[in-house]
């Protein structure tokens, strides 16, 4: 059922449009990759430089829209939970067929690639001799392949959501009743929390002293541990319910759409942290800014999460 909701139509329409724009960019990018030589003064190189303006213009805008489309995707999936029997929130809809979970992972990965491209593009334009042009277009090629794959998956996924087969809702996917502890490395909740705050501190230190490899490691770990900390600890305080463990319900209106802020800051913080490490060899002001942004987003993330817990404690005098 592709006519599931207005949001699905809009989403697919916008995605198709973006893909055709990227295709247009691809048409201009290929000769640039093949013949780019900044030192050359031939008319061909001159024409290529002009074409490069168009290509990066299109890619930049398209990718910017692509970023905006991820939260919209989450919103759309969440809306579909009304129509899929058994689904309480996006978790059930994502589990409606085999594509869902993989697709979400792919989308997040693409987002990281998109972010890297935008930063690379910026660095490239800032330098007088466009040193990264070939690199950024090669990155674009990879991104293009991924995005085309993603669009195909989107179509497959959305058209094979059945509105008659019941799915399991988030409480049974993430619920406490599942066998064994869902938290990785067999950590207890307390240990998970300690690790979470330690990692956050490590991220801050890495950002402060611009230590690339620590930043890379700590931010990647923070995303991983942060995910579990939110689902199995902070989420309980957001839902004010000691039994509700779900990464998606917090995207809903009942919880003030706070999920978008939480997951947004976590992913952004992680992204900037990792990007800063990757760009560290290139030096320059961009890296400093990236460290700062990473620290800012991580701090926001930790603040939002912790505020929920503290607020609950101050209002009720107990922990959940």
């Amino acid at each position: 059922m592709i006519f599931l909701s207005n949001a699905v139509i809009v989403f697919l329409l916008v995605e198709a449009l973006l893909l055709s724009l990227l295709l247009l960019a691809l048409y201009h990018v290929i000769p640039i990759i093949r013949h780019w030589d900044f030192a050359d003064t031939s008319p061909r190189q001159y024409a290529l430089e002009k074409r490069s303006y168009l290509a990066q213009l299109i890619i930049f805008f398209t990718l910017a829209f692509k970023i905006a489309l991820l939260p919209y995707f989450a919103y759309m999936i969440d809306g579909l939970s009304l129509m899929v029997p058994g689904a309480m929130c996006a978790a059930g809809v994502l589990g409606a067929n085999d594509y869902g979970a993989f697709l979400l992972g792919l989308k997040v990965a693409i987002l990281f690639g998109v972010g890297l491209w935008i930063i690379l593009n910026r660095r490239d334009l800032q330098a007088s001799d466009y040193p990264y042009t070939r690199l950024k277009y090669l990155l674009f090629l990879a991104l293009f392949a991924l995005i085309a794959f993603e669009s195909a998956l989107d179509w497959l996924y959305l058209s094979s959501i059945a509105t008659t087969t019941p799915v399991s809702c988030c409480s049974s996917i993430y619920g406490a009743s599942t066998l064994g502890s869902p938290i990785p490395f067999g950590l207890s909740k307390e240990e998970l929390l300690i690790l979470f705050y330690l990692l956050y501190a490590l991220c801050l230190v890495a950002a402060l002293y611009s230590i690339g490899w620590i930043s890379l490691f700590a931010n990647a770990a923070l995303i991983y541990i942060g995910y579990y900390a939110v689902v199995y600890f902070f989420g309980l305080y957001i839902y004010e319910l000691p039994t509700h463990q779900c990464p998606f319900c917090m995207l809903q209106r009942e919880y003030g759409y706070v999920g978008y802020a939480i997951w947004g800051t976590l992913l952004l913080g992680g992204f900037f942290g990792i990007a800063s490490a990757l760009f560290a060899p290139l030096h320059g002001s961009t890296t400093r800014a990236l460290y700062r942004l990473s620290a800012l987003c991580n701090t926001l993330f930790v603040l939002i999460c912790s505020t929920y817990v503290l607020r609950y404690y101050f209002l009720n005098g107990v922990w959940l």
Binding site: E240, L241, P242, Y312, L315, N316, G317, V318, L320
Partner: peptide, 11 residues
């Protein structure tokens, strides 16, 4: 609120 766990009971 529940004196034991602090949740809003009317929910």
């Amino acid at each position: 609120k529940c004196p034991v766990c602090g949740m809003f009971v009317s929910k």
